[in-house]
Nucleic acid binder design. Structure first.
Length: 343
DNA sequence: GCGACAG
DNA sequence: ATCTTGTCGC
């Protein structure tokens, strides 16, 4: 307790972590290893996964780790699992993996045991891959440890190796006009560490894509773009939704209802109606309505035909954001222009 | 006027 | 990450 009270982990721990990163980094494969990765239409790719860990405000220990698997190219949820965990490591920039990866590994392992047929062929990871202080971000870390192809998808530029979110960078962003536009992130070291990608026509803010494991940067960018209905790629976005709903039901059973965001409390209109939720170990699958309370529990769940998902493609006015509605768009935006009101 | 550091 | 406000940039 009170480990990270003041200055985070001791220098000793950090250097241990650095050594581990250096050791594992040797196993990173930064090129395409699968046939589908080189195919123009990604034919052969059938399942894309997303993972993330979400936190409970006011609680530095409890968190929720989730894994979802989507069909490709339909992008429908075919598997989702989440579990409450107790974090052991604090967040330290450059060492995100030591905080999150152990739990993500467990989820992958669980899937491997229970539903090997649903194992994703690639994972989109919230965070960076080789675009990292030591070239070994969480996407590489998880990739090496699972031996799954992984892509780092970050929402903010990690300013390393001379990369800076400065005026020049912002100007380059401004030049990204339509979905799919991108520019390389060239570090002072002379290496291309990743790409800034405009993932959606209606979103100005780029994603920062970098290689995690067993995939080229080009394929990573192309795949990410293929997974974007909105700014955030569906696998990652679905994981966020799962985490959010999970948190809300968690809180109805617990103590932090008052800490929930108003968006969630209000019974968000963007919530997939009646979407099934999965919970923690030892529980049952539930049908949870927006804002509805549910027993705290959960278990692996296979939601193959999530026809409910279709609602995501329907006119569900999600975020009555700001007076930025310049465009009469025919598609529902859940999070495009903004940093997502979700999580 | 703040603080730079993925999540 | 979370919460929140509001629309840049030094």
């Amino acid at each position: 307790m009170a480990l990270e009270a003041a200055g985070g982990p001791p220098e000793e721990t950090l250097s241990l972590w650095k050594r581990e990163q250096a050791r594992l980094k040797a196993h990173v494969v930064d090129r395409d290893t699968e046939a589908w990765q080189r195919d123009p239409a990604f034919s052969g790719l059938q399942r894309v996964g997303g993972v993330d860990v979400s936190f409970v405000k006011g609680d530095s220990v409890r968190a929720c780790a989730s894994l979802v698997v989507l069909s490709f190219p339909e992008l429908e949820v075919v598997y989702e699992e989440s579990r409450m965990v107790s974090l052991t490591a604090p967040y330290v920039s450059g060492f995100l993996a030591f905080r999150e990866v152990p739990f993500l590994l467990e989820l992958v392992q669980q899937l491997r045991e229970k539903e090997p047929g649903l194992m994703p062929q690639v994972l989109l990871v919230d965070g960076n891959g080789v675009l990292h202080h030591r070239g070994f971000g969480v996407a590489c870390h998880l990739g090496v440890l699972t031996d799954l192809p992984c892509v780092g998808v970050a929402k903010k530029l990690l300013q390393v190796d001379g990369l800076e979110n400065n005026a020049l960078h912002k100007e380059k962003i401004r030049l990204l006009q339509t979905r799919g536009d991108s520019f390389p992130l060239l570090g002072d070291s002379g290496t291309v560490l990743g790409m800034a990608l405009r993932s959606h026509d209606r979103s100005t803010r780029p994603l920062y894509i970098s290689v995690g494991h067993r995939m080229s940067l080009e394929a990573a960018v192309r795949l990410t773009c293929c997974c974007c209905r909105f700014r955030i790629p569906e696998p990652v976005r679905q994981v966020h939704l799962l985490l959010c709903s999970r948190r809300s039901w968690e809180s109805t059973d617990g103590v932090s209802v008052g800490l929930l965001s108003p968006w969630l409390r209000a019974g968000p209109s963007w919530w997939p109606h009646g979407h099934r939720r999965c919970g923690a170990p030892g529980c049952q699958v539930q049908a949870l309505l927006p804002g509805q309370a549910g027993p705290l529990q959960g278990k692996a769940d296979i939601c193959s035909r999530e026809h409910i998902r279709k609602s995501l493609g329907l006119p569900g006015p999600p975020t009555p954001r700001s007076p930025k509605a310049q465009r009469p768009v025919a598609c529902p935006k859940g999070d495009s222009g903004e940093s997502s009101a979700l999580c």
